[in-house]
Design a protein around this nucleic acid. Structure first.
Lengths: 240, 240
DNA sequence: GCGTATCATTGACAAAAATCAATTTTCTAA
DNA sequence: TTAGAAAATTGATTTTTGTCAATGATACGC
């Protein structure tokens, strides 16, 4: 458990916790490996634990009776999820599925809840994380209503790119193209065509899951013109 | 100011405050009437105050350089906004415009911030409000990716309707159709056609801004089939 | 009450994205 | 290494929504 404790220390909302508080929250924590496709919980389940992604990727989604699926978010390592259920009705507001082999640590929500009630610093950290996430969602809603498919894809790529890199920029897509498509709210076919269009319009070079370009400029020009924030977006790496 | 204090007592996040805390937050509060079109602040402005809607409607939005506008939300009386800026970078994450004649009370963000830092109960209330809002936004993103225009409109109408009403259901649109259209992420023309389609498919009767139907059932069948939550939606009246 | 500005509706058309179907490519497990 | 499955691409077509233009309705100030 020592290992886990060190790990969660890195997450923003636990950053300022002293070891006593950390110990209380970690009580009963358990770590396990999950393979692609593992469902961690379903929208509507009673929420008893929250989760930390030590490695891998997790998809949060909601689906309708007739099977249509809306991706709420796809989270990388370092993020936590399922923690908002300590407020209100204590059911999960989405389903969670592992989309790449992942190591996930789960924690008791009850412990978190009681610690938050006593520890104002933790409450403040959590408030700050929530505010940041809320902005990301505002941005997401904006993108979906203003940007078209190729622009959304371009924006997604820009967020993956390391903007400090000099010379040729290399991006590796972190998961399946089909999954990126649904993350961006479009069909796989639309994604594929959007990528072709980006190739033609911005000169990016695509080789499987690897994308190269001489500079980010043309992508920025193509995508960020249909966005209210200017590049580089402030919300990058929002969970760190 | 007594009047104002009574008023903000009704808002969820201030509900549990004692009069001392309330007094501190209300220090320097000021109330004023604004007419339609008044811009309260612009996305990116340095945030120094947050706002409470005593009466009327306020639109929160973001816009790109070329004028495209994305509505983040449209809030009725009883809501506060601009308060999330106490975290992070302390700039407003959206612009705010009065869309109906409104009485707005503004409060110092600094007072709020210092009170939250000391008052754990307030922090908890705020966390709970944030979590609720986050769910609403999850829902919003879902609707925009799964529901089509007429379904989104149907859903909007259902949220306006009083579900306890017996017999004929009567709904009054709270603001301009053009504004509802942008709130729902569609053009005014699309809104108009969506309303026609709803008339044909669900038997609702439209007379200007007044809409009547014999029961909500057909609307529920039409819209809620493309939604992950079942009617009646739990997040209704989320700010109370 | 009347003219005027704004809002709302309608039609014709264009653009974007979804859908359906057929391949091609890539990955994986035997 | 190869067969089979899954993922990705491409073409043809339909559906949905946006755009442009014209007209009709409504509200408001004078």
């Amino acid at each position: 458990m020592d290992e886990n404790q060190k790990e969660i220390l890195k997450v923003s909302i636990f950053k300022h916790l002293d070891s006593g508080a950390l110990k209380k929250i970690s009580a009963g924590a358990s770590s396990s490996m999950h393979s692609k496709g593992k469902i961690l919980f379903i929208h509507g389940d009673e929420a008893q634990r929250f989760y930390f992604i030590k490695s891998g990727w997790v998809k949060l989604f909601r689906e309708t009776l007739d099977g249509a699926q809306a991706i709420v978010d796809i989270l990388p390592k370092g993020y936590i999820f399922g923690e908002t259920s300590i407020f209100e009705d204590s059911i999960y507001p989405y389903s969670a599925e592992v989309v790449e082999p992942s190591e996930i640590i789960s924690f008791s929500l009850k412990n978190l809840k009681s610690e938050i009630a006593e520890n104002n610093q933790l409450a403040l950290s959590m408030l700050s994380a929530m505010a940041r996430y809320r902005r990301q969602q505002d941005q997401e809603i904006e993108h979906r209503s203003i940007q078209n498919a190729p622009q959304r894809l371009g924006c997604f790529l820009l967020r993956l790119a390391n903007q400090d890199e000099v010379g040729v920029v290399k991006i590796h897509l972190p998961y399946d193209k089909t999954l990126i498509a649904s993350r961006l709210g479009m069909q796989p076919e639309t994604f594929s065509r959007a990528l072709s269009k980006l190739k033609a319009q911005t000169g990016i070079r695509v080789q499987g899951a690897t994308i190269e370009m001489d500079s980010l400029d043309s992508l920025v020009r193509y995508s960020c013109s249909a966005c209210s924030s200017e590049f580089p977006c402030k919300d990058l790496h929002a969970a760190e």
